[in-house]
Design a protein around this nucleic acid. Structure first.
Lengths: 295, 295
DNA sequence: TGCATTCTCTGACTATAGTCAGGCAATCGC
DNA sequence: GCGATTGCCTGACTATAGTCAGAGAATGCA
């Protein structure tokens, strides 16, 4: 399998690499073109760009100056924070970006060009599958403090979403778990990131000799269908096993049907309510060790 | 479809680009590492390397010198031609290349790592399909004189192959077509290339008011299954149409079963022998205009 | 044999990518 | 209010990639 992946890398970097460079190298250096592209039609904060492109602040500053001198971008102080600066494309910058866009379209069309319609359809489908799975593999899962900005972002997104989905809304204050309980050694909190941006989370609380308790499982809509929920769950379960938890418990709301399906297919069995979580309709449990009788 | 291709390019250059760079950038500059890799365990002519990597001769010379000074390669005069020099890896160079190889393996394994076995299988399959079709799309077809080195290469390969496959061998001298007949204006010859290397060919001879005659269709074993035979055939037919040929004819040997299948599925109908080609067992014809009655 | 070509190498360049240290202003936290 | 931090900028670097012109030796061709 590894050799297949390598062979793919080789072919694709030859082909797509050529594409990418061609689309960028108009008459402008690649770095500038990439930046121009990344700024986007709606503009962006300089620090966002720095994080996204992973550039040295000095280098980015210089690139921006070059684009500014070329009349392609306008750099202004951001309203809220006087230190932050925002960049947006000027009319000329937008035009330039449109050209890049068109070149990119043409390059992509040139890939499809020599193929028969049937081959094209198959290629596009295979590309979509490859892309989805490569994206899934690019997601990184790491332990984080629940108070970490990335964790907070996920939790806010989670609360926002269930607030919209639960029949009577959702009030985090009524919840049965606190940040402290998902912080070592009482428990832990996992955040999944894609290209540095948080896209999913899940927390667990350990109780000596008793089932571990999973809470706050969330996957960003942007990456759903990549198996991330299952992966987070597996990672949490692995940590429960490492802590000798005999089983893992969780509960969920009836409106979260995908989650319920996922829990069932991951081996969770519905059990009688083991707590009085006000928003729960289903309680699940999965044995982890040999020392737990099926409930 | 174009946007799907672009999205793929974006994702994959991020991911595979990182891969490729990571695998190369050990402590050596990327250009040197790529060269080290490309020299391969069996060594290579300098001019081959220059063609394959598409490098400036001065630049390549300098890269070789750097590798030589580092004790990784040995550059010697080639035996046959005093101008040409050959490069081979020293023991240290082989070791270095093995390290690159291993890094590359590790990088590929890291892609598969976060996925479930099922996802891995799907990814590998989708990658293989994408690679096959991207390769197919990278093949370029161009008119060439049959005496051009690339054309000669294909013809030699073709003669060699049918010499092995035909029951009683094959003698090109007994063939019914000459180079002149596949040269404009009498006819033309197409050569398919992949990354500059010839991988297929096909010739056609025109006869005013009579069917055009296709000959010397060959596809390198390395690229079989990519639809290149069909593509060459379609290109030849298009040129026959442009020359107002009412139909296209060809004949083939019974041992070339894949070719026979391909001709049939491309719309060719078997007809009575229209010539006395000594090596033929099947004669095919396909109408191109409206002014040709089915044979 | 003589002339053009091929192959490799050297020297002299340029441009891009990227790093590092430090400075200045705005903001945050106590 | 004050110190630490953040965000952006400038200056001074280095290294890599790549180009261009030309030299010198070997070879091919007439």
């Amino acid at each position: 399998m590894v050799s297949r992946v390598r062979s793919f890398n080789r072919t694709v970097t030859q082909r797509a690499g050529a594409l990418n460079d061609a689309f960028l190298s108009r008459d402008r250096p690649l770095g500038q073109a990439r930046l121009l592209w990344e700024i986007g039609p709606d503009g962006s904060d300089v620090r966002r760009l720095r994080a996204r492109l992973d550039l040295d602040s000095g280098y980015l500053s210089r690139l921006l100056r070059a684009l500014e001198n070329a009349g392609l971008v306008i750099v202004e102080p951001s309203g809220a924070d006087g230190r932050v600066r925002t960049v947006r494309l000027s009319a000329a910058g937008l035009a330039e970006r449109a050209v890049l866009d068109q070149r990119s379209d043409e390059a992509a069309a040139a890939v499809l060009g020599p193929l028969t319609p049937c081959q094209r359809a198959r290629l596009v489908q295979a590309m979509a599958e490859t892309e989805r799975l490569l994206t899934a593999s690019a997601v990184e899962v790491a332990e984080r403090d629940p108070r970490h900005p990335d964790a907070r972002f996920c939790l806010q997104a989670y609360f926002g979403e269930i607030g919209r989905r639960f029949d009577g809304g959702f009030d985090p204050a009524r919840s049965l778990i606190s940040d402290d309980e998902m912080t070592p050694p009482a428990g832990l909190f996992l955040v999944a990131s894609l290209h540095g941006e948080p896209v999913g989370c899940g927390g667990i609380r350990f109780r000596t000799g008793a089932p571990a308790y999973i809470k706050r499982m969330w996957v960003s809509p942007a990456v759903r269908g990549l198996g991330l929920g299952r992966r987070l769950l597996a990672e949490l379960e692995a940590r429960a096993v490492a802590r000798h938890a005999p089983a893992v418990q969780l509960e969920t709301n009836r409106t979260l049907s995908e989650a319920i399906t996922m829990y069932r297919s991951a081996g969770y069995q519905e059990v009688a309510p083991f707590n009085d979580e006000p928003y729960a309709h289903h309680w699940f449990e999965k044995a982890q060790g040999d020392n737990w009788r099926e409930g």
